[in-house]
Design a protein around this nucleic acid. Structure first.
Lengths: 119, 119
DNA sequence: CCCAACCACTTTACCAAGTGAAGTGACGCC
DNA sequence: GGCGTCACTTCACTTGGTAAAGTGGTTGGG
């Protein structure tokens, strides 16, 4: 990105706003730990993207990758403390979504301003 | 995105994780209101992207666009209540960045960042 | 009066990131 | 020993963002 590398918001945005990143973090937080589990719960993600995301997050110190000495050698991913520090953001996003987005409604055609709650 | 439209986190991520979105919201919150002001403070954004982002945010009801009847007709953008509801996320991001990212340090990565390359 | 700049964009051409489908190699199951 | 799983990688394609230039109206300067 072409933004100020000294700005914590910019830096954080740069990391977490890559597609799927926060969703991966959430899945990890909810107990999913293996590649194919993540792949299955993140319906629509391509294995390439998941792989990339996981590697980036590992590089950032947000997830830890652990290759278990089993057969077949399975791999487990887990959030680090740094990774868990992202959870409040996800919580905020859930709040925002629940408060302002009609997530269980068919998303009224174009101007759904009429559903704007106590503004 | 190919994610669950009923999931508030997915929906919010979809809106908020477009490049520049949160940075635009922050600038708006910090008093910038005109197109060229935003353009100037968001160094590196292309006018096309800013325009797109602003229009998307307007459609989402996150910003309000107001065309003033002046000469030359200037345009002002402002956050709505819904838009302000995104601010906690930005605050979290700042916290995360300050706590976990070395935003004021040279970020000692692999090879020389400080010396200008032969280009 | 004419040229230039400003504002709020749009248009065009290009490139990087993400997608879907398929492939890989090591293994386990029957 | 052929089939399936796991954790990816490779490939061709589409989408989204970028840089650079253009647009149309309005002010300001020489």
């Amino acid at each position: 990105m072409a933004v100020d590398p000294e700005c914590p918001v910019c830096r954080t945005a740069d990391i977490v706003c890559a597609k799927w990143t926060l969703l991966v973090v959430r899945e990890l937080d909810e107990g999913r730990s293996r590649f194919c589990e993540l792949e299955r719960s993140l319906t629509g993600i391509s294995p390439r993207t998941l792989s990339l995301r996981l590697r980036e997050l590992e590089q950032e110190g947000i997830v830890e990758r652990q290759q278990l000495p089993e057969l077949p050698p399975r791999v487990e991913y887990a959030l680090t403390d740094k990774g868990r520090a992202l959870l409040p953001m996800i919580e905020d996003m859930r709040c925002f979504g629940e408060r302002w987005l009609d997530c269980n409604e068919p998303a009224a055609s174009s101007d759904s301003v009429l559903t704007a709650p106590t503004a």
